[in-house]
C-alpha cells in the first residue's frame, strides 16, 4: 500500500522565497536581483532582511542577467528572480554568453513555469525552458517537486560553484518531501519502490505521478516512482538500476515533450538499456488561459495521462 504523508499545501515559489531568505542570512555573499516581480517570486522577505544585497532592476531582464554575471566578479553569488519565460527565452543570449560560456556562479531562479501559471495564458506559460537550459554547456538544471524541496534546492545551490537554472511554479500543491530531507544535486529520489513500471517525473508531475501510482496499485500494478529533480546532470545510475527491474519507463513533466526530461531519459535508455518509454508532457502546443488544473487536464499532463501511459508501456514490453 502506497503511503505518502502529505505535510501541507503550498506553492513551490514560496519554498524559493523561504530558501532565499535562509541562505541569504547564512551566506553573506548571496545577493538577489529581481525584475519587478518581488511579490510574485516571494522575494519580499529577503528584500526586507537583506536590503543591502537586494537589487531591483525594473522590467529589464537582459540587464538583470548581465549584471548578475558581473556581480560574480568580486565573489558574490547572485540569485536572479523573474518568471520562467523572462528568465530564459527573453534572455537566452545573455545567459549563453555571460553566464554559461563565461562559467559564472549565477543562480537563475524561475517561477511560474509551465501551464500551471494559469489564467495569464500562453505568452507567459513557457514549456521550452528546460530544453533551452539543458542544452547550454556548464548549466545545471533543477526542477524541484514541492515546497520543501524547492526550499532545500534554493539553499543547496549556493554551495554549488557554477551556473544553475532552478525552475518552480505558482500553484498550491501538496507537500510530501520531509522538511529535513537532504537535497543532493544530481542524485534522484526514489519515492516509491516497485517492479512493473518506472515513472520518472519532475516538478508538479511528481505529485501527479504519486496519484497515478495509487490508481495503478489498485489495479494490481507495482510502480517505481523516481523524482528526477535534477535534469542535468542526469542521474543515469538511478534510471538504469530501476529499469533493470521494471523493463519499461514513463517520463512525466510539465514541459514540451520535445527537449524535456523525457528526451534526456531516452538518450540514457537508447545508449545503455533499450526498454519501451512513454512520454507524458505537452505535445508541440502552446497553452492558453484557464485554471492550472483545467490546463493540466486539457494538455495531457494530469494523473490519468500518467496512468494511461503506464498501462500502455507495460503492454509494449510484453
Amino acid at each position: 500500500m502506497i503511503e505518502i504523508e502529505v505535510l501541507g499545501n503550498k506553492d513551490t515559489r514560496s519554498g524559493f522565497g523561504e530558501g532565499l531568505l535562509e541562505v541569504g542570512k547564512k551566506n553573506k555573499d548571496v545577493v538577489a536581483l529581481c525584475a519587478d516581480l518581488t511579490g510574485s517570486l516571494k522575494m519580499d522577505a529577503f528584500q526586507k532582511e537583506c536590503s543591502d544585497r537586494f537589487f531591483q532592476v525594473g522590467i529589464a531582464e537582459a540587464n538583470m542577467i548581465g549584471m548578475a554575471a558581473g556581480m560574480t566578479v568580486g565573489g558574490k553569488i547572485p540569485y536572479t528572480g523573474t518568471f520562467a519565460n523572462f528568465s530564459t527565452g527573453r534572455v537566452y543570449d545573455q545567459i549563453r554568453q555571460a553566464i554559461a560560456y563565461s562559467k559564472k556562479n549565477v543562480k537563475i531562479c524561475a517561477s511560474h513555469a509551465g501551464l500551471t501559471l494559469g489564467e495569464d495564458g500562453a505568452t507567459h506559460q513557457i514549456l521550452e525552458d528546460i530544453g533551452m537550459m539543458k542544452m547550454l554547456p556548464n548549466m545545471t538544471v533543477i526542477v524541484p517537486c514541492d515546497f520543501n524541496q524547492t526550499k532545500q534546492a534554493t539553499i543547496a545551490i549556493a554551495d554549488h560553484k557554477g551556473p544553475v537554472y532552478l525552475r518552480f511554479g505558482r500553484p498550491v500543491m501538496p507537500i510530501f518531501v520531509k522538511p529535513d530531507a537532504q537535497f543532493v544535486i544530481g542524485k534522484a529520489d526514489t519515492i516509491i519502490e516497485g517492479s512493473d513500471v518506472t515513472i520518472i517525473a519532475c516538478g508538479h508531475l511528481v505529485w501527479k505521478s504519486i496519484e497515478a501510482a495509487k490508481v495503478l496499485e489498485a489495479q494490481g500494478i507495482s510502480v517505481e516512482l523516481i523524482n528526477m529533480h535534477t535534469i542535468k546532470p542526469l542521474d543515469k545510475e538511478a534510471i538504469l538500476k530501476s529499469v533493470a527491474k521494471t523493463r519499461c519507463v514513463v517520463t512525466a513533466e510539465e514541459h514540451m515533450i520535445n527537449g524535456g526530461l523525457g528526451d534526456s531519459v531516452a538518450q540514457v535508455l537508447i545508449q545503455n538499456d533499450l526498454v519501451p518509454q512513454e512520454f507524458v508532457g505537452v505535445n508541440d502546443s502552446f497553452g492558453e488561459s484557464g485554471t492550472p488544473m483545467e490546463l493540466m487536464t486539457k494538455y495531457g499532463i494530469d494523473t490519468q495521462n500518467v496512468v494511461d501511459a503506464a498501462l500502455k508501456v507495460i503492454q509494449r514490453k510484453k
Binding site: 537582459a62 540587464n63 542577467i65 558581473g70 566578479v73 568580486g74
Partner: peptide, 8 residues
Amino acid sequence: SNALGTCQ
C-alpha cells in the same frame, strides 16, 4: 550590464 554588476 556586466560592468554595473561588478560596480555593485
